[in-house]
C-alpha cells in the first residue's frame, strides 16, 4: 500500500483527510496502470536509463553571460538586497 502521508511529507504538502483518501486511490490506480509494463517479456533486453542512443554530450568550459541580478531575483518571493529571502531554515 502507498503511504500517502510519507509521500505528502516528502513533497511538503499538507493534505486533508478527504484528500488523502482521494489521492491514495488515484496513486494506486496510476501505479497499477504502470504495472501493465511488467506484463511485457523483457528478458532478452539490456536495461537502460535512456531511450535515445546518445552518449557523451558535452560543452566546453567557457564562460557565458549570467543573468543581471535584478532579472534573476525578479521571481523571488522576497528579496533582501542582493539575496533571496526565505523562512529561516536552521533552528
Amino acid at each position: 500500500m502507498m503511504d500517502i502521508d510519507h509521500v505528502a511529507a516528502l513533497a511538503r504538502l499538507k493534505l486533508t483527510d478527504r484528500e488523502k483518501e482521494i489521492f491514495s486511490r488515484q496513486v494506486v490506480d496510476i501505479i497499477r496502470y504502470i504495472d501493465k509494463l511488467n506484463e511485457l517479456d523483457t528478458s532478452g533486453i539490456e536495461p537502460t536509463a535512456h531511450v535515445l542512443p546518445m552518449k557523451n554530450i558535452f560543452r566546453e568550459d567557457e564562460i557565458r553571460a549570467s543573468l543581471p541580478r535584478d532579472s534573476a531575483l525578479r521571481n523571488a518571493p522576497e528579496r533582501d538586497g542582493g539575496f533571496y529571502r526565505v523562512p529561516r531554515i536552521i533552528e
Binding site: F58, S66, L67, R69, F83
Partner: peptide, 30 residues
C-alpha cells in the same frame, strides 16, 4: 556557462539553468 568563481557579489553568477527555471536543459561541462 555561469562563472564558478568564489567571492563575487551574491546572485550575480546565475542563469535560468542553475536557478532551475522550467524548460531548461543541463549540458555537461567536459
Amino acid at each position: 556557462g555561469c562563472p564558478a568563481k568564489f567571492g563575487s557579489e551574491p546572485n550575480t553568477q546565475t542563469c535560468p539553468v542553475c536557478t532551475g527555471m522550467p524548460g531548461v536543459l543541463p549540458v555537461m561541462n567536459k
